[in-house]
Design a protein around this nucleic acid. Structure first.
Lengths: 207, 207
DNA sequence: GACGGTTTCTACCAATTGGTAGAGACCGGC
DNA sequence: GCCGGTCTCTACCAATTGGTAGAAACCGTC
């Protein structure tokens, strides 16, 4: 448990950015070190191998994501209805994810990278998120039973929600291909339409 | 325009599979050649460089995807309502994508790979799909105007649909993390819930 | 000012990467 | 049986990969 915060942390940050944008395979330790202004061996001092570094970055990314989620979704003002207003939780999550898409896109990229099909760190990533997943699952299930939300299966519904939100937030290339250049304004519009879309999908006909 | 169909095609097929599962960076020409039972130089004879091969594979994947789409979505029985029943088109697309998820997951993986943020083949991929995108956009816009579908912006709505469908079909690791092991049965259930989800999101309250 | 621990470095290394040069094998036509 | 094109090979290559070994610099403590 060494107390060498600065370098170790800088490595983690830079690696997160690089892994999240260029991909793990697309990032060499040498390039990473160059970017940091140090030698590759200094990286290997803190993280004995590249895969070890990757694992650390995955944890770091997961924790950062959780921190952002907790700060907004479970913020003090929603204290009373912690498993209450599901729609408020969805709205909050969308807000968080889109704020990340704007300000820390590499974090979302990293999550996407870690959850690639066949990835062996996927278990690790989602294990760290399992708490949040279970909470969401639980409150969604209750809302389903009480008829406040429309759907058949809470788990699959949650999965659909996740896919939609993450997809709309991160599939920038597809968006670009459709003629929409990513920008602050287009991002806001995208979020608005997504919220409307999810609202229509989730809430009963009476709204 | 050489007539050396077999080898050239075999390379394309194997590369599509490998790129779609292991990723481009994760696939070396040597490994590819080994898998094919030939030497790397034979690959480089047909495709002068790895990026050239990648580009060819992207086109191949796009064309395969289009072929699958056309065979089902625009099949003869829907001749009359080519820009008619939008929901039927959505349903058909979902059916196609999920059939691919089961029978040719590497094709979906390849599409995902090619549309990674920052990918420079994304333009190429989506350029090839632009026809279908425009058609979908158009019929969605008409349905919006006529009130047969709920939404604000046809383009963003289409984007949301795409994200949801592709996400639900390909995010197997997230699914696994939620305790659902991918299988034929879970795939069918996922599709059913997705269709219900999309139906609720798209169609007006009266259904 | 010598000490042990932490940190960062130089110096290598074997293996793998994408790619080049060019020889030979295979093939139908003459 | 030889020729020209198509194809696949052997033989290399320079550069880069992740990683090891171990020397120095740096640090506060005694």
């Amino acid at each position: 448990m060494s107390r060498s915060t600065p370098t170790r942390q800088r490595i983690l940050d830079t690696a997160l950015t690089s892994f999240g944008t260029t991909g793990v395979d697309g990032t060499s330790l040498d390039a990473l070190a160059r970017e940091l202004g140090i030698r590759k061996q200094s990286i290997l001092y803190y993280y004995p191998s590249k895969t070890e570094l990757f694992r650390a970055v995955v944890d770091y990314a997961a924790d950062s994501f959780i921190a952002e989620l907790d700060a907004i979704v479970l913020d003090p003002q929603t204290e009373a209805n912690d498993l209450g207003d599901v729609w408020a939780q969805v709205e909050g999550t969308v807000r968080v994810v889109f704020r990340l898409a704007l300000r820390r896109p590499e974090l979302l990229g990293m999550l996407r990278e870690a959850s690639r099909p066949g990835s062996d760190v996927a278990v690790q990533l989602t294990g760290r998120l399992s708490n949040h997943i279970q909470v969401a699952h639980h409150s969604l299930e209750i809302a389903l039973k009480e008829g406040r939300v429309v759907g058949d299966d809470a788990q699959l519904l949650l999965f659909s929600l996740y896919s939609t939100i993450m997809g709309v937030a991160t599939e920038v290339e597809v968006l670009r291909a459709m003629g929409i250049e990513p920008s602050l304004r287009s991002l806001t519009e995208r979020r608005a339409e997504l919220l409307r879309f999810l609202r229509a999908a989730l809430l009963p006909a009476g709204r």
